[in-house]
Computed example of a mutant assay.
Amino acid sequence: MAGKEFTVNLNKPLVFQVGHLGEAYQEWVHTPIVTDESPRFFKSDFMEILTRTVWWVVPLIWVPVAMWFISVSYTMGHTLPQVILMSVVGSFIWTFLEYCFHRFLFHIETKSYWANTFHYLIHGCHHKHPMDGLRLVIPPAEAAILAIMFWNLYGILFTISTRPALFGGGLIGYVIYDMIHFYVHHGQPTKQSIKKLKKYHLNHHFRIQNKGFGITTTLWDRVFGTLPKTKADKKSG
Rank of each mutant, 00 (worst) to 15 (best):
T117E: 08
K128D: 05
T110W: 07
P81G: 03
H127M: 01
R103L: 04
Y99P: 01
H129F: 15
T95C: 08
G124N: 05
T79M: 05
V83G: 07
L134T: 08
V88F: 02
C125K: 15
L105P: 07
T110K: 01
V88H: 03
H126I: 00
I138H: 15
H107E: 03
H107P: 07
W114V: 06
H126Q: 07
T79L: 06
L121I: 10
F118W: 13
L85R: 08
P130K: 12
V88G: 00
G133D: 10
K111G: 08
C125P: 14
F118S: 13
V88C: 02
R103E: 01
M86S: 15
H107Q: 04
F106A: 10
C100Q: 10
H107I: 04
V137S: 01
T95Q: 06
Y120H: 03
Y113E: 10
V89H: 07
A141P: 15
E142M: 09
V137Y: 11
H78I: 09
P130F: 09
T79Y: 02
H102S: 04
G90S: 11
L136A: 14
M131E: 14
T95M: 04
L105D: 07
I93W: 12
H102R: 03
L134Q: 13
V89I: 11
N116G: 00
Q82M: 12
W94V: 00
G77C: 00
E109P: 07
C100V: 12
T110Y: 06
S112T: 13
W94F: 00
S112W: 14
L97D: 08
L146F: 15
D132V: 02
I84E: 04
T95Y: 03
I122R: 07
K111Y: 15
F92P: 10
W114Y: 12
P81D: 02
F92C: 14
G77E: 04
H78A: 11
G124T: 05
H127C: 00
C125G: 14
F106K: 11
S91L: 09
C100G: 09
P81A: 07
E109N: 11
F101K: 13
I108L: 15
R135K: 10
V137L: 02
K111C: 12
C100W: 15
L80V: 15
F104T: 04
L80E: 11
W94Y: 00
V137F: 09
V83S: 05
I108W: 15
F104V: 06
F106V: 07
L146V: 09
F106I: 08
A115F: 10
M86K: 09
D132S: 08
